[in-house]
Design a protein around this nucleic acid. Sequence first.
DNA 1: GCGGTTTAATAACGGTCATTATGAAAAATA
DNA 2: TATTTTTCATAATGACCGTTATTAAACCGC
Lengths: 198, 198
Amino acid sequence: MGRHREFDVGKVLDAALCVFWRKGYEGASYADLTAAAGVERPALYSAFGNKEALFRRALARYYELYLGYIPEALQLATAREVAAHILDSAIALNTRFPEHTGCMVINGVLAGSDDAEPVRQILIEARAVAETQLRERFERAKAEGDLPQTARPDALAAFLMAVLHGMAVQAKAGFSRDILKAVAEQALSAWPASEQRA
Amino acid sequence: MGRHREFDVGKVLDAALCVFWRKGYEGASYADLTAAAGVERPALYSAFGNKEALFRRALARYYELYLGYIPEALQLATAREVAAHILDSAIALNTRFPEHTGCMVINGVLAGSDDAEPVRQILIEARAVAETQLRERFERAKAEGDLPQTARPDALAAFLMAVLHGMAVQAKAGFSRDILKAVAEQALSAWPASEQRA
DNA sequence: GCGGTTTAATAACGGTCATTATGAAAAATA
DNA sequence: TATTTTTCATAATGACCGTTATTAAACCGC
């Protein structure tokens, strides 16, 4: 007996998921969460416990709703198909919702509160500057024949930056130097061969 | 005229840089900063302005002290040397200081406050699980001849995860789908060829 | 309809955040 | 030495954080 719950727990969880996806864990305040969910604070506490428990539930739902392509890919016939499918799916997911781009797992530690927005823009700009410098250097290399005419300097720059970002994340996660070197080696093995000058 | 400053502004800035490198922008409180710098709060405000200005100064010093390898690499003769030098240098920097690993620019939005540590561990674990799944799938592929015997499944998994992390960061920074696809294409072009079965 | 029980909304809690007012201490000029 | 100027340390500020009493409302079995 007792009073019935007046809100849909699933919908509230989905709303919280969107907020966490966009703002990360720290960046999402209860003011944000209650505004998105349309319920008051104590309702979230009674239904999910504290903030960390709510985040864990949202993370589980994220895997459930959006990361199904991982087990899906693991069943494909070849490793190349596995990788291609995961890459494609991740790109699709990362760009699917304009209001919460990227991956919730990464954004959970990437995004900050609104107060930190100017700082995040500084970092984004700093990242873009480095990539532009690389792209310009690769354009020069292409003009000099150091890279083939088929090479795409912007793609090479973006790719190199991606691997660098990824390795920074991995280093933070405790990776050893050796495995990071293996990652770098693998990345370099894709490098376009320089043209044989006539 | 007037009283002299009793602390070394450079040393205080270096101390603040270490705190920001480890905890990120939001994660670094004035309690952390003053403890590391050995000066009181108002000293930081009088010397640097507010927290954001202090972070900007620390970021500039980070580039000055630790990212000199980027312009250095840009002057090398070939694109491959540029990339190799940047990769090597980044790995060295990311693993140089045990107490603040990774890259300050990335960590600035990757690291959270101590309160968020359990959550960060959850995300790190979630990341490791996905990578393990990939590695196991690639080991199977190697056993099946889908990957050559020279292939390193752990390296391939780490590499793929690195590119995925990097693309998530880039998507957050506003990258278009097209450039992300170019990044994925470049990453796949390094994929080891399957063995020709006899 | 009534007692027991669960949920709902309001409002408050202590703690920490970045920031700063305040007044004492120290150095330079006169 | 007296005065001015700058830095120093203590401690307070208002705002926001996550969390929770408290009280009123809604539902159940009886």
